[in-house]
Structure formats: C-alpha cells, structure tokens
Amino acid sequence: MNRGLGRLVLGRLGASAFSLVFVIVAIFTITAALPGDVADTLLGQGATAGATAALRHAMGLDQPAWLRFWHWLDSMLHADPGRSLLTGRPVAELIGLRLYNSLLLAGATAAVSVPASLALGLACTMRQGSRFDRFVTTALLGVVSVPVFLLATVAVFVFAVQFRVAPALADINAVHSVWQFIRVFFMPVITLAGATTAQMSRMIRACMIDVFSAPWIEMAVLKGVPPVRIVLFHALPNAIGPVVNAIALSLSSLLGGVVVVETVFNYPGMAGLMVDSVAARDVPVVQCCALIFCVAYLFLTTLADVVAVASTRRGGSH
C-alpha cells in the first residue's frame, strides 16, 4: 500500500515540478519576449534610435533571450529580483512588507471563509432540495457569477456609504488595537470572504452531495444512525479528499479577488503593487510578483492533490 501511495504522491510532485518550470519560463517569455521592450517604454516615443540602443545595451537587453533568461533565473535563485525601473529601489525591498500584508489579508479571509463554507456546504447537503437549500444555492451562484469589484462596490455602498460602520479605505498604519484591526480589515475581508465562501461552499456542497448519494448512506439512514453521526462518521471520511481539493482550489482562485480588493480599498499589499507596476510597465516588479503568486498557487493545489490522494487511498483499495 505504502509503495503505491508513495509513487502516486511522487507523480503529483513531479507534475507540479513540471508546472513550476513551465510557469517560470512562461513568465519570462511573456514579459521579456513580447514586442515593445522596456527601453522603448522608458524613453517614450520621442527618443532617438541611438538613445534607445544605448539604454538597451546598458540594461543588457541586446543579449540573446536565453542568456537574459539565465541571468534572470540566476538572480531570482539568489533572491535578488533586481531593481524597479520606475523608482530604482530594490524589488525585494518594495515587496517585503507588502507580501506580509497580503498574506495577512489572505489568512484572515481563509480564517473566515473555510469554516463558513464548511458550515454552509454541510447545511445545504443535509437539507438537500429544501427551500433553504434552493435559496442558498441560488444566492451563492449569484455571488460567484459577479466580478469581485462588484461585491466590493456593493460592500462600500452598504457599509461605508449607507451605514458608515467601516471606512471605505484600509489605512493599515492606523492599526493600534484589536478594534481598529477589525475596523480596517472588515471591508476587504468581508468582500474577499464573500467571493471565496460562495465558491467554496458550492464546491463542498457538490462533493458532499456526491458522497451522500452513495447507497451506503441510505443504508446508514435505514439503520437508524443519527444524522450528525452519518455526516461525521460515514460521509466525511469519504469526502476528505474532494473537500480538501475544493478548499484549496477556492483559496487559490482567491488570488484574482485579492488583486481587485487591494486596489479598491487601497490596501498596501503585493497585488496592488503588481497592478500599479503593470500600469507603469515596471517589468522586474511584475515578474517577481507573478512568480510569488504562481508559486503560492502551485503550492496550494499540489498540497490539496497530495492530501486527496492520501485520503482516498486509505480505505478505498488495497
């Protein structure tokens, strides 16, 4: 059993490693090999050909693509992503604190949305087909169908404009107490958690219903096993894999939301930095941010895959 399991896990890790390589190459190719290079952008349209060429040479842009890729990879491996084209400050310094802020936001969102989704998903499963279930699933479908900025706009309109319970902008420097922390984080977290919870509870409901349609659940009902026991002892052991997968997938799709939410609420996180850098064509910053996001995304999905594999192998087969 363990050998088979180990091989499967190794297979997943191998696939992820391939994806990582693909992602690194893709990030470099897209940002460095597409038309319109940095020198053009920096000097603007009025620049002479000579000035552009000189700058290209100074920046090493006249070297062949594979050499530039090598230099870039080398510096990334040494945790030295270079300097911002815009401000000249080291990218590492720009990102440092903002990465922490983004992780804080993501952590707070996960802390809210995971329990909420589990509760909602299970509640819907247990009352499948009831009015409650139909209402909740329709509402959740509505929430996943709209872009995140729309949720943010509605949140601002309701909480900041109409009821004035929380500020529309997140001033993270003003946090000195728990109360202030809640006030500042309330809006971004409620928006992000709204989007993530909707996605996650739908997926959890789908895989729980899948498990609940199994004949052995009907058998447990006919044995007179209490509903709570059915969920905890019969359904969950068989649903761990899919549920963990659902959670990880939803958490990783949270990334798109983070980008928007940080921009809307002016939250000083990494996604906001990335958007600003994209607008300013600040390629080194964009590359570094993209790499960090992609690695985080890959890490989550791989983790979920491994957990799913391990849990289905436990009692499922030899």
């Binding site: 199994a214 004949p215 052995w216 009907e218 058998m219 019969h234 052991p237 436990r314 009692g315 499922g316």
Partner: peptide, 12 residues
Amino acid sequence: AQNAGSAFNPAL
C-alpha cells in the same frame, strides 16, 4: 440491501 458491495461504507 440488494448490493452489499455498495451498501457498505468503503472507508470503515
């Protein structure tokens, strides 16, 4: 049940 193979919980 008709099909004991599917009426027993595979994880227990």
